[in-house]
Design a protein around this nucleic acid. Structure first.
Length: 301
DNA sequence: CAAAGTTCCTGCGAGC
DNA sequence: TGCTCGCAGGAACTTT
């Protein structure tokens, strides 16, 4: 599900639902996701108020009033579903089993994958669901972001002061393909498989092109690399807009809504016509580092 | 068979 | 020649 725009959409949804509320209970329905939950997770959260919610790369950072921070990553299939007080009553049955979520039906699953339930003082509930369990839920101290092993090596935010000169510096020696480089979170964060394909298509760059061929000998970016940076930012910004517009009525902050309303130019369009004006090419699918890449061999060089 | 993500391991080549 | 380091590529995690 989640690349930067989807995570940002989830962040905004959680912000509306959680900030200012206090945890009254937290239920863990298993002991781990990708990693074990920290032992003190439940005890630490109960009685704490949520002060703010930030995003770094594809991670969510939920700031608590005692200086702890919940570090949450959605992996491939993680999502949050929010229930206000009324909806909790609506979906809760009196004979809840300990093994299954109270909210399985409402979240579209049978409840087996609702791993964490956060209960708040106003009666609302947030449920974390993650069938593949590639997600992460950890607890850190505020200020620890920069030294946490999962965060320390992360590259620049695309919406920050990232630019073509910076990218050129990172790529000028790289022999790996530009598509694989874009997915490397040490080079720039937030870009995943879908938006990497889309940004390369928009900027007319072949995904298998060696990264360093996009940098001039004097170390400055080529015009194509300028275009790539512009298109990465554009495609992510537009996706955030789409996700934001799908949020309005809360309840489900599923980032999938962001993808749902989005029509891609190349991703998942194998054998279909290239949509670039006047191109006339046909979209191909190849594999790079074990992941599907979609491209138009005619307009991407 | 493939899937929106990330980490870890192995093998290879460069350089000392 | 032999060793270390870094990079590049692939496997693994899991469920639908």
């Amino acid at each position: 599900m989640p690349e930067l725009p989807e995570v940002e959409t989830v962040r905004r949804g959680l912000e509306q639902a959680m900030v200012g509320r206090t945890f009254t209970n937290v239920i863990l329905r298993r002991e781990n996701l990708r990693f074990p939950f920290p032992e003190n997770l439940v005890d630490t959260l109960i009685g704490r108020r949520v002060d703010s919610i930030r995003r770094r790369a594809k991670y969510l950072l939920i700031d608590l009033d005692d200086g702890h921070v919940i570090l949450s990553h959605l992996g491939m299939s993680g999502r949050y579903t929010l229930f206000d007080g009324e909806k909790v009553d609506q979906f809760t049955t009196p004979n809840d089993s300990d093994e299954r979520s109270r909210f399985g039906t409402a979240t579209g699953f049978d409840g087996r994958h609702d791993h964490v339930e956060f209960q708040f003082d106003d009666g609302s509930v947030a449920v974390y669901t993650d069938p593949r369990r590639f997600g992460i839920m950890d607890l850190i101290a505020i200020g620890e972001e920069a030294i946490h092993p999962l965060l320390e090596a992360l590259g620049p935010e695309p919406f920050g002061d990232w630019n073509a000169n910076h990218l050129a510096q990172r790529l000028h020696k790289k022999t790996t393909s530009i598509k694989v480089a874009l997915l490397d979170q040490r080079i720039v964060v937030g870009v995943g498989n879908i938006y990497a394909c889309e940004a390369l298509h928009r900027s007319g760059i072949h995904p298998q092109r060696q990264s360093k061929t996009l940098v001039r000998k004097d170390g400055k970016p080529t015009k194509k690399l300028d275009a790539l940076v512009e298109m990465v930012v554009e495609v992510l910004e537009q996706a955030v807009e789409v996700g934001g517009s799908s949020l309005n009525d809360f309840a489900d902050v599923n980032g999938t809504l962001g993808y749902f309303g989005h029509h891609f130019q190349v991703y998942d369009r194998e054998d279909e016509p290239c949509l670039k004006a006047g191109c006339g090419g046909t979209i191909e699918r190849i594999t790079q580092s074990g992941r599907s890449t979609f491209l138009c061999p005619r307009c991407q060089r």
